[in-house]
């Protein structure tokens, strides 16, 4: 808002809002593209759809320069420790878009090797349905995320301290009868599975 007595080029606002405004318009995505959705992610960056219109065209392939992880495609059992490690390597503040049915819920791949939704193991801000989602949908998710940042963000990152509602989802492990269960827990620090229990 403008303040009386000062020139019109001076505005007064909350520091949180200013920080949110800056953060939301310069999202740097980290394309964690594993499968089909990765090609639609490329199409979103290419000529017809052009993600640069939303200030998110600076795709960086190193997690240390990014603040938005777009998980595009299904995440297999062997890939999940890598995903967790990349998520931990990203600097704060950071957000995550789960693009496509497979990343969000496992999609059609309800098999032994596919993680049934990445939100069971890492936090997710925006889910995009579709198999794969159209580029327009991905653009909409970027807009939604910008809206979320503007609404809830604080400069000190206080919103990240509140655990999200319903996270993580109920473990599917209980659906497997005890006789069928085989415990081989993963460890993202070493990216190997250790035998225990």
């Amino acid at each position: 808002m403008a303040v009386e007595g000062l020139s019109e080029s001076v505005m007064v606002t909350q520091l949180d809002k200013l920080a949110n405004w800056v953060r939301k318009n310069s999202l740097w995505p980290m394309p964690f593209a594993t499968a089909c959705c990765g090609i639609e992610l490329m199409a979103t960056g290419a000529s017809r759809h052009d993600i640069a219109r939303f200030g998110a065209e600076a795709m960086r392939f190193t997690p240390r320069q990014c603040d938005l992880m777009i998980v595009a495609g299904r995440v297999a059992m062997k890939m999940l420790p890598v995903l967790q490690r990349i998520w931990l390597q990203m600097p704060e503040p950071k957000w995550c878009i789960s693009m496509g049915a497979c990343a969000s819920s496992g999609g059609v791949f309800d098999t032994y090797a596919v993680v049934q939704g990445i939100d069971r193991f890492i936090p997710v801000d925006v889910y995009v349905p579709g198999c794969p989602p159209r580029p327009e949908q991905l653009l909409q998710s970027v807009i939604d995320l910008q809206d979320k940042i503007q609404r809830t963000g604080t400069i000190a990152g206080k919103e990240f301290q509140i655990p999200a509602q319903g996270h993580p989802p109920r473990s599917l492990a209980v659906d497997v009868p005890p006789t069928e269960r085989m415990v081989a827990p993963g460890n993202y620090a070493t990216a190997t599975r250790l035998q225990s229990e």
Binding site: M77, W87, D110, T111, Y112, R120, I162, P168, V176, M182
Partner: peptide
Amino acid sequence: DYPMRGRGERHNFPIISRPES
């Protein structure tokens, strides 16, 4: 004789929540 949904291998990973990451 191996079930299609596996024997729970896909569920055995540590969970990273938002406050601790």
